[in-house]
Amino acid sequence: MTILEDLKILKNEEVAKNYMMMEIKSENIARKAVPGQFVHISLNEKVNGNKNITNDPLLRRPFSIHDVDVERGIVKILYKVVGKGTFLLSRKRANDVLSIMGPLGNGFAIKKDIAKAAIVAGGIGVAPMYFLLKALLKNGVEVDFYLGALSKSELLLLDEISSLGANLHIATDDGSMGKKGRVIDLLYKNLKTVDVTYTCGSKLMMREVVKIALAKGIPVQVSMEEKMACGIGACLSCVCKVKNNEHFEYKRVCAEGPVFDGKSVMMV
């Protein structure tokens, strides 16, 4: 059962320029969520406290779950302020209430028998990978974490990832930290034999990650993003192409995804 509730914001603070960390109170979502799933948040305001809403911006916005604290019943969302929805969200404060639906979609598959994994995240794509990293480490998996961003100021969670015990590999486009260049070049040179690769970032980046991993015979799971409306598989807006024999079919990012097998998803 998906939760659809008005939930209270506990915290909503800037962690880097244009990047925000929000904490929401929800025992149910915290308990149910798995890495790779998302929540669907409405930015509508209620008019005069009744059920009618402002209707602008109209649609809910999907956000991947960054982390959960099951004991304290907290769900964390790490997001970048890019447009109208995220701008309005960034102005919400502690004790404000949001209509939230979730957890939604299928998360990353973590097979029992894996010993080593690689995570490749670009920019804000790091958001769901932190939750995944924690789950992998808890299962005793050794993780190489490849993190790329435009520059040092947009490299998030460096201390958190290192202190959890992942092997961190950093690349920045401007060379302000780590290897200068693209994270995929870093991955190409360094990707060892691991049991699985997980990736979240731009389509451009993920397409290269899939190529590199598959060339080494490593399975790869990708987290897809498309413009979304309902979030529950009804409207068929957020589809992506998935190979089906010689042809393809459109699969719903919200329902069959957002995590897909890199071998079959077509990132065009």
């Binding site: 209707n55 602008d56 911006p57 109209l58 649609l59 498309e226 413009k227 979304m228 409306a229 409207c235 068929l236 807006s237 957020c238 589809v239 992506c240 079919e249 459109y250």
Partner: peptide, 22 residues
């Protein structure tokens, strides 16, 4: 099969869709 993506775009207090009867 339906139409290629993007299939929706939000507009002020509305949205455009072109699902294509998938």
């Amino acid at each position: 099969e339906g139409n290629p993506t993007p299939r929706i775009v939000e507009t002020p207090a509305g949205m455009l869709n072109s699902i294509g009867l998938q």
